[in-house]
Design a protein around this nucleic acid. Structure first.
Length: 137
DNA sequence: GCCAACGTTGGC
DNA sequence: GCCAACGTTGGC
């Protein structure tokens, strides 16, 4: 089991949109590092859903229900999409500010590499964020 | 809205 | 193959 974090602007597609949809396609990634992370996702992996630009917080948990397949929105190039299903929102959303203030979370790419939109999360980091979010899985 | 950080593109 | 210019992301 691996853990991940994906970013989305809630104005475009927020966690509540994924909840409403049930299963959503995670497509449109056009960054090689992010794409390679998408391809490393395995069915059943848990994914933190982060709201970028607006909100700036981890809003919910979802899981991988379909592993990487060709991104239908890519007109050219070798890009991938996965399908995610909402599991549950965090009882208490965890803000970027709180993550930056937590010494246990300083190594996260979320803190270190601002622009990466799909990134791995260590199990201990995942558990820490759930704890901060007062949520059990 | 601004701008820093980073990735990509393209001229040489 | 280098690197300057440009575009995009995303925090502030």
């Amino acid at each position: 089991m691996n853990y991940w974090l994906v970013k989305s602007e809630p104005d475009e597609y927020g966690f509540s949109d994924l909840q409403a949809e049930g299963t959503g396609r995670w497509d449109g990634v056009r960054n090689y590092a992010a794409r390679n992370h998408l391809r490393s996702m395995r069915e059943g992996d848990l994914v933190l859903f982060y709201h970028s630009r607006k909100g700036l917080e981890v809003a919910g948990i979802c899981k991988v229900v379909r592993e990487a397949y060709p991104d239908p929105t890519a007109e050219k190039g070798d890009w991938s999409a996965v399908d995610l299903r909402a599991v549950r929102p965090l009882v208490q959303p965890v803000s970027l500010k709180a993550i930056k203030a937590n010494p246990k979370l300083q190594e996260m790419p979320l803190v270190r590499i601002g622009r990466l939109s799909v990134m791995p999360v260590a199990e201990a980091e995942f558990r820490e964020i759930l704890k901060m979010g007062e949520t059990e899985i």
